[in-house]
Every structure is written in C-alpha cells, then in structure tokens.
C-alpha cells in the first residue's frame, strides 16, 4: 500500500515517519522547496502539555503527555527533559496563583530553588512554578533529522508545485494552513516569534513569563540562541512581524532578564497555525484522503498522537503494508 503524504511540516513528517515504521511505502510531497517552511519552522518546540492545559482542553494533556517519548524514540538525543519554569513579575504574582489553579504537575519553587535551577535568574523572582515532567526540542533540527531518517529509509520526497504524480493508494493531507478556506471552520491563528543571540545569559529550559496581556516564553537553543514567542492573533495574514508585536516580545524578554537588552536580534518570523473552533486537532476522512489538521499551537506536542491515529485508521481499513513492519 502506497501512501502519499502531502505537506512536509511537523504533521506530514511525523505521519510519514509513523507510517514508515508500520511498513508502509511513503512518498512525501511538499509544495515549498524544502521541509518545515510553514508554521512548524517557527514553533517553540515545547513538549509542555501540563502548562498548555492552562487554556487548552483535556485532550491536549492526555494526548500530549506521550509526545516526549515519541520524539525520543524517533530521534534519540533530541529531546531535552528539563522541565518548564513559569515565573511572573512582582505586580503579576496573582497570575502565577491563577496558573497554578488551572494546571497540574507542578511544584512551587522559592528564590533559592529558582537560583539552583536557573542560576541566571537568581534574585529576580520570589517564586515560580516548576513543571518537572515537561520537555523541549529544537523544531528545525528535529524536522531535518526526521527528513534525513526518512531519506535514509528510501522514502521519496518530491518538492515544488504539482501534487506528487507518483502512484499511490491513499493520501494523507497534512498541508495545514493551506487548507484554510477549503475546510469549513478551519481558521488561522497568527503567531509571531523572534530569535535573540547573547552569551550574557544562559537558560537550561523553557521559561514562561506570565503577564495578563502578553504571556511569553523563551526557549534556549544551541549556540547562545533564544527563541522568544509567541503572539496569538486571530488572523491568517502571514506578513512580517508588526512593530507592536516585536516591541511586546522584546519588552517581555527584557523583563525576564535585562541581559536580553544587549542581545542581538537574529531573526523574526510569523507563521499561521491552523485551528478548528475548539482549538483541538482532528483526523478526518474524505474519499481516499485522510486529513490531519487543526494542530493550532500544539504541532510538536500533538502531531505524534495524530500520526498514531492515521496509522490506526490505515491499518484498520484492510490496508496491508507494503513491507514488513520494521
């Protein structure tokens, strides 16, 4: 059984990987020149279902808590299991209590414990929430590694316009935001991010700074890089970051630590996250096509669960894999 996976973002590559592992013959078609050119490339890469539960519904936690293991199994060494630190400025201390009331899986840290965990934040916050079970990865590295793994396994990649002429039996459409306007109720939620570079501060794990108006997160990357994100704007405008958003993200980074004031702004980006009205992803069927969409701000977190669902449906539908499962 030959499967054509459309779209080489986090959804498409995750699905392709899962299907390859089940022994299917997979071709991946991506309209762009290379993988990860949509929202996935701008993702934070946080595998943080306990934190996300603050505003997301229960499935984000039940499905998302399996994500770190999936990524670790697929890409050994990519997942950093160092937890998430959640802090708030003095005036917003109430936000921290509210966050705690709406989540689970955390422990309170005092000033000393914060300093032990993140020495650079010593003395800056009196208390914090620590989500020990959470993890993160570098999205661009992870997507490249999945691609390399699939290529090594002789799965085919087709890039550019057209719909992938190769013969196939079933299609899995993972084109995300490209489906907005074609699928009822699918909308775009714009997210803007930026990358800073500084050797004046280091962090070991994602830090979330709560603020009633602009909650942000900072995820440390290799080579003194920090990803700062992300705005949430009801729009599918993919234009460059606005001055206002840039100002707000930078302000928040500066509030976390003044060292970010001296950092270099390496790049900025904006991506469109596809979302259904409940902000939860879905696998739907239409003819011989399975659609995976609506991953919203939970691409890396929920794509593994969606990929598992796609594999289950294809296996249940009397589909015999082409090869023996590896």
């Amino acid at each position: 059984m030959r499967i054509l996976v459309k779209g080489a973002g986090v959804a498409g590559l995750t699905v392709a990987w899962q299907l390859y592992r089940h022994g299917f013959d997979v071709t991946i078609h991506e309209r762009a020149e290379k993988v990860g050119q949509g929202a996935s490339g701008f993702a934070g890469g946080m595998l943080a279902p306990w934190c996300e539960r603050e505003s997301a519904e229960e499935p984000v936690l039940t499905l998302g808590r399996l994500a770190a293991d999936w990524w670790e199994a697929a890409l050994p060494g990519h997942v950093q299991r160092r937890g998430t630190l959640v802090v708030a400025g003095g005036r917003d201390a109430g936000e921290l209590d509210r966050f705690a009331r709406r989540t689970s899986g955390w422990e309170w840290l005092d000033e000393q414990a914060i300093a032990a965990l993140e020495p650079n934040l010593a003395g800056r916050f009196r208390k914090a929430l620590f989500f020990r079970q959470e993890a993160h990865l570098d999205p661009r590295k992870a997507l490249s590694a999945l691609t390399a793994g699939l290529e090594e396994a002789r799965m085919r990649f087709l890039f550019g316009p057209g719909d992938g002429a190769a013969h196939h039996d079933r299609v899995v459409d993972c084109t995300g935001a490209a489906r907005i306007g074609h699928v009822p109720n699918l909308r775009g939620v714009r997210g803007e991010m930026l990358r800073l570079e500084t050797s004046d501060i280091s962090l070991s794990r994602p830090v979330r700074l709560l603020h009633p108006r602009h909650p942000i997160y900072i995820v440390p990357r290799e080579r003194n890089h920090f990803m700062v994100g992300a705005t949430m704007i009801e729009s599918d405008d993919a234009g460059p970051i606005t001055a206002r958003s840039l100002m707000e993200l930078l302000n928040a980074a500066y509030a976390l630590h003044p060292a970010f004031g001296e950092a270099r702004l390496v790049d900025t980006g904006a991506g469109i996250r596809p979302a259904y009205p409940d902000n939860l992803p879905q696998v739907t069927e239409e003819g011989d096509t399975l659609h995976v969409n609506g991953l919203y701000r939970h691409g890396f977190l929920l794509a593994p669960a969606m990929a598992g669902e796609v594999a289950r449906r294809l296996l249940a539908g009397h589909a015999q894999p082409e090869r023996m499962a590896s």
């Binding site: 907005i180 109720n185 909308r187 775009g188 704007i233 009801e234 729009s235 599918d236 234009g239 009205p277």
Partner: peptide, 17 residues
C-alpha cells in the same frame, strides 16, 4: 479589530465565527 486581523486571505475566519 486589529489591522492584521482583517488582512488575511479568508477575510477573517474568526469574524465568520
């Protein structure tokens, strides 16, 4: 109404909602 909200190709799916 934010300016970028109405800038998208679908004419604002959120406004439809």
């Amino acid at each position: 109404l934010r300016r970028e909200t109405s800038g998208g190709k679908s004419g604002g799916a959120f406004f439809e909602l």
